[in-house]
């Protein structure tokens, strides 16, 4: 039984049929690299997995927590799923430590001493122990994104979703974030990541999922797909990336 299973998922924005029957399974510890052209529905798919977007048909199950069309209470799903955004979205009025401790304290009612310890552990994991009392505005983009990862990890999610988490970063800051993600993958964290870093997808991904026009157009082992795409659309996509 997969950790995440998505079955016949449909999503519309008005008349725009954005996800057209997605089926996707993610096993525990697996790293999924989600690729595809802009507008193919990658972000929308990711956002349905933690209930940021409601779904019109189909179902999503994450570690036993199930969401169907019309579901109102997303909390069971969100307790299992962590998410890191392109724009970091740290809380600017809270220190780094408070950013990480906030949700464990108020959502999980972790006691303050334990929350502090947890935050210290998570910040150590992303190499930012010394920034506990700093404010987000005082950090570089790469550091902010690592704090965002620590913040998501502090909720001890079963799976982490990453939506182009290095796209807003200056090129020299990309690798510090990717190496944290790689380390998480090595520790066995289940990851679903939308990425334009093809080398990283190839190196760290266990499965490559190519989305095209709201469908999973092709999926398989990254190496095989890159070397021998079986659809012209994926071949064209890889070609376009190589030229860039």
């Amino acid at each position: 039984m997969s950790l995440v299973s998505i079955h016949q998922l449909h999503k519309h924005f008005g008349d725009n049929h954005v996800l057209k029957g997605i089926d996707l399974n993610v096993d525990e510890g697996q790293v999924i690299a989600l690729i595809g052209r802009s507008g193919s529905g990658k972000s929308t798919l990711l956002r349905t997995i933690n209930g940021l977007e409601c779904i019109d048909a189909g179902e999503i199950t994450v570690d036993g927590a199930k969401i169907q069309a019309g579901a109102k209470d997303m909390r069971p799903l969100r307790l299992k799923v962590g998410m890191v955004f392109q724009q970091f979205n740290l809380f600017p009025h809270l220190s780094v430590g408070e950013n990480v401790m906030l949700a464990p304290k108020i959502v999980k009612k972790t006691d303050p001493a334990q929350a502090q310890e947890l935050a210290e552990q998570m910040l150590a994991k992303v190499g930012l122990s010394e920034k506990f009392d700093a404010f987000p505005g005082e950090l570089s983009g790469g550091q902010q994104q690592r704090v965002a990862i620590a913040r998501a990890l502090a909720m001890q999610p079963k799976v982490m979703l990453c939506d182009e988490i290095t796209s807003a970063l200056d090129p020299e800051l990309v690798s510090e974030v990717l190496s944290v993600v790689k380390q998480l993958a090595n520790e066995g964290m289940t990851l679903v990541m939308v990425t334009h870093e093809m080398r990283f997808a190839r190196e760290v991904g266990d499965k490559l999922v190519f989305m095209h026009q709201g469908r999973v157009h092709e999926e398989g082992p990254p190496e095989a797909l890159f070397n021998a795409p079986s659809t012209p659309e994926l071949a064209a996509f890889i070609g376009a990336i190589d030229q860039a």
Binding site: G51, R75, R78, L79, M83, F85, N89, F91, H93, V107
Partner: peptide
């Protein structure tokens, strides 16, 4: 910014919690 609410929601905060801890202070500020 909407991203603040989404970050709070993705951390499983409910509407009240995200207002109280994420929105209120920056809004007043």
């Amino acid at each position: 910014p909407k991203g603040q609410l989404e970050a709070a929601a993705s951390l499983a905060m409910n509407r009240y919690e995200s207002f109280r801890y994420v929105v209120l202070r920056p809004a007043l500020q």
